[in-house]
Structure formats: structure tokens, C-alpha cells
Simulated scan of single mutants.
Amino acid sequence: MDNITWLANNTGGNDFILLGFFSQSKDPALLCVVIFVIFLMALSGNAILIFLIHSNAHLHTPMYFFISQLSLMDMMYISVTVPKMLMDQVIGIKKISIPECGMQMFLYLTLGGSEFFLLAAMAYDRYMAICHPLRYPVLMNHRICLLLASGCWFLGSMDGFMLTPITMTLPFCRSREIHHFFCEVPAIMKLSCSDTSLIETLMYLCCVLMILIPVTVISSSYSFILLTIYRMKSAEGRKKALTTCSSHMTVVTLFYGAAIYTYMIPSSYHTPEKDMVVSFFYTILTPVINPLIYSFRNKDVTGAVKKMLNVGPDFHETIK
């Protein structure tokens, strides 16, 4: 109820103005088209991946369940920022009200935090599959997977519930212009006329926990995985395990690297231009890259695509 109260008390004519990418672009119309195409690619790529996973019985495994959750998060993640940004450019109005800004901030913090923990759950799943293959069906049954996924969503929402009210209740007496394309916490805090050092410390500690816990799970899981792979006698099994894990580690590196820069590097190293580029990468490009990584580098997914398109063995022979 408190969150609704502070949103209601802050409504009025003091809207923020999102400057975004387009104000700095030499050809904003072209940039708008490019971002729209990227947005459609992200939505269609993740939607197709979710459809394949749910419609193909061979993909009804814990690994693909978590991949479908990742795709769902990516679809929602990019939808929080891009439609508003494109609509503002088309209509020519760049204002965002304080309640809208708070809602956008809460959603992207929740989805970003949920993705942190989901990537850790995916690493744990790979650890169980490779290091405990015989007990894997029991230890990672459907109920356990649902509990892990629900836990990821819940822990991610804690990030939104903690940082959004604190940031949005700051006194804003400077310029209302946000040098960003969406309401990101560091960009909003720069507009406050109060001392934000305590809040920045709190945000840093919050993000350390949000990143440190999943990173500990991921690094521990992969330490055991690498040890198990090293002991494998089968070259084919070793190759398959490495291929599966490399896809996940690529996604982890891309997502965590950008998040660490945004929330854990001191503000003195930040510039509005750098922040927008990094945010563009992990909020807009990453949702496009993830389905590509998990489809093109995965024989099960490409096999499901071929089956859906009814591509027979004769066609494969002609290609060869």
C-alpha cells in the first residue's frame, strides 16, 4: 500500500523528459527503424523458442524449461523500454510521468534481478545433469524446476521493491531531463538535489548480493562441471558437455558484464553516453542474442525447427 501512496503523491505536472538516443543521432528516423527491427527480432526469436520448447516432447527437460523462462523474461524485458522509446520518437513527445517512470523502473529491476538468479539456476541444472546423471531425473523433477523458477521471480522482485521506492521518493529540484532512454536508477539519482551517497552505497550492497549469490552458484557449479568433464573418457561426451555449457557461459558473461558496469563501477567512471550504450546492449541487444545462442548452437533446437518445417532426410542429403 505504501508503494501506491508514494506514486499517487508524486503525480502532477512535474514529468520527466527522456532524452534518449534519438536526440544525439544524425539520422533518428533510421535509428528508429533499426531499433524497431531489433525489437521484432527479439520478440519473434524468443516466442519461437518458447513455442518449440512447449510443442516438442523431446525438449520437455529441465534445461529447456529454464531456457523458456529466460526467453519469457527477455520478451518482457525488452518490452518494458523499447515500445515507449519508439512511441515517443514517432509522436514527438518525450515526457514520462513519475508513476510511469516508477513502474518502468520496478519492472526492469524485477526482470533483470530474476534473470540473474535464473542464470544461476541454469548453471545448477547443468551441474546436476553432468555430475549426477543417474539421479538427475529425480533431483531435477518438474516440481523442483517450478520451485526454482518461482524463487528466481520472487528474488528478482525484491530488487524492484527495494530500489524503486527509495529512488522515486528522492527530492528532484534539478533539471527534469533524464539523459537516458528509460528510467534507470543511476540516471534518476543524478537529478536529485539531495545527497545520494548513502543510497548509492545501499544500491551497491544490494547489487553485490544480487550478483554475488548467483555468481557463487555459477562458479561453483562450473568448477565441478569442468572437473567432471576432465575425468570423462568419452571424447563425444566431453564435447557435448562443453558445447552445452559454453552457450550458457556466453549468456552469463554478456549479461553480468553489463550489469556490473552499470551498478558496481563508481559513478565517477560513468558518462551519460557510456551508460546509454551499455544499457542498450543488455536491455535491447541481449534479448536478441540469447535465442540465437541457444538455437544455432543447439542440435536439439535446430532438430525441432527442422521437424516443425517438415524437412526430411532427402533434403539434408541434397544440402550435403
Results as ranks from 00 to 15, higher is better:
138 V>K: 15
263 Y>W: 00
71 S>L: 01
156 G>M: 01
4 I>A: 12
195 D>K: 08
201 T>L: 04
46 N>K: 11
8 A>R: 14
216 T>C: 00
3 N>A: 14
192 S>I: 09
37 V>F: 10
306 K>S: 07
73 M>G: 06
284 I>H: 08
63 M>G: 07
14 N>Y: 13
316 H>I: 01
230 Y>R: 07
197 S>W: 07
259 A>Q: 08
274 K>N: 12
122 M>R: 04
31 L>E: 00
32 C>G: 04
274 K>E: 01
225 I>E: 05
32 C>W: 14
135 R>Q: 13
242 L>F: 02
133 P>S: 05
268 S>C: 11
296 F>L: 07
95 K>M: 03
165 P>S: 08
292 L>W: 13
228 T>D: 09
139 L>P: 06
311 V>A: 03
286 T>H: 09
190 K>R: 15
104 Q>H: 13
176 R>V: 01
290 N>G: 09
32 C>L: 13
254 L>A: 13
5 T>S: 15
15 D>Y: 12
168 M>C: 09
53 I>P: 05
90 V>D: 02
52 L>C: 05
159 D>A: 03
310 N>C: 04
169 T>N: 05
295 S>D: 02
125 D>E: 15
298 N>Y: 04
17 I>H: 14
135 R>K: 14
272 P>C: 08
169 T>F: 00
11 T>K: 15
177 E>W: 06
240 K>A: 09
33 V>A: 15
212 L>S: 02
25 S>T: 12
33 V>C: 07
6 W>P: 06
156 G>W: 06
172 F>L: 03
277 V>M: 12
214 P>T: 09
55 S>E: 01
316 H>D: 07
245 C>Q: 04
38 I>T: 13
153 W>K: 09
173 C>W: 06
256 Y>W: 13
155 L>Q: 03
